[in-house]
Measured scan of single mutants.
Amino acid sequence: GGTTSGLGELPSGWEQRFTPEGRAYFVDHNTRTTTWVDPRRQQ
């Protein structure tokens, strides 16, 4: 941990993952979708 950059926890059902290249993306298990956009930035 320690790399949350002050955004806090992800919404319920979300998970942060990384591509083999090390790029972060976000998985929404509620809708079984993925996005490059941090859901915390859409609030």
Results as ranks from 00 to 15, higher is better:
G1C: 15
G1D: 13
G1E: 15
G2V: 11
G2R: 10
G2E: 11
G2D: 13
G2P: 06
T3G: 08
T3N: 14
T3M: 12
T3L: 11
T3S: 12
T3F: 11
T3C: 11
T3K: 14
T3A: 11
T4N: 15
T4P: 06
T4C: 12
T4E: 14
T4Y: 02
T4G: 11
S5Y: 13
S5F: 05
S5C: 13
G6Q: 15
G6R: 11
G6F: 11
G6D: 15
G6I: 14
G6L: 09
G6A: 13
G6H: 11
L7C: 13
L7M: 14
L7K: 11
G8S: 07
G8W: 05
E9W: 03
E9S: 08
E9M: 09
L10P: 02
L10N: 02
L10K: 03
L10E: 02
L10G: 01
L10M: 11
L10T: 03
P11I: 01
P11A: 02
P11Q: 02
P11W: 00
P11V: 00
P11G: 02
S12F: 07
S12E: 11
S12K: 10
S12D: 15
S12C: 08
S12A: 10
G13S: 04
G13I: 00
G13R: 05
G13H: 08
W14R: 01
W14N: 02
W14F: 11
E15N: 03
E15A: 05
E15T: 06
E15Y: 02
Q16H: 09
Q16E: 12
Q16R: 10
Q16D: 03
Q16W: 04
Q16M: 12
Q16K: 13
R17E: 12
R17K: 15
R17D: 06
R17W: 09
R17T: 09
R17L: 14
F18C: 13
T19E: 05
T19W: 00
T19P: 03
T19D: 15
T19H: 04
P20V: 11
P20G: 12
P20L: 11
E21M: 09
E21V: 05
G22H: 07
R23I: 14
R23K: 15
R23S: 15
A24C: 14
A24H: 10
A24S: 10
A24E: 11
Y25H: 02
Y25F: 08
Y25P: 00
F26W: 12
F26Y: 14
F26H: 02
F26T: 01
F26R: 00
F26I: 01
F26A: 01
V27P: 00
V27C: 09
V27A: 06
V27T: 07
V27W: 05
V27F: 13
D28G: 00
D28Y: 01
D28P: 00
H29P: 02
H29A: 07
H29G: 07
H29C: 05
H29V: 05
N30K: 08
N30Y: 07
T31R: 07
T31W: 02
T31C: 07
T31F: 05
T31L: 06
R32W: 04
R32S: 09
R32G: 07
R32H: 09
R32E: 08
R32I: 05
T33I: 15
T34P: 01
T34H: 03
T34F: 00
T34A: 06
T35N: 01
T35Y: 02
T35M: 03
T35K: 02
T35E: 01
T35P: 00
W36S: 06
W36L: 07
W36N: 07
W36D: 07
W36C: 05
W36I: 06
W36E: 06
W36R: 06
V37W: 10
V37E: 08
D38E: 06
D38W: 01
D38K: 06
D38A: 06
P39W: 00
P39A: 01
P39I: 01
P39Q: 01
P39C: 00
P39V: 01
P39T: 01
P39M: 00
R40M: 07
R40N: 05
R40W: 03
R40T: 06
R41C: 15
R41Y: 11
R41E: 15
R41W: 10
R41T: 14
R41V: 13
Q42H: 15
Q42T: 13
Q42G: 13
Q42E: 13
Q42Y: 12
Q43C: 03
Q43L: 15
Q43H: 06
Q43S: 12
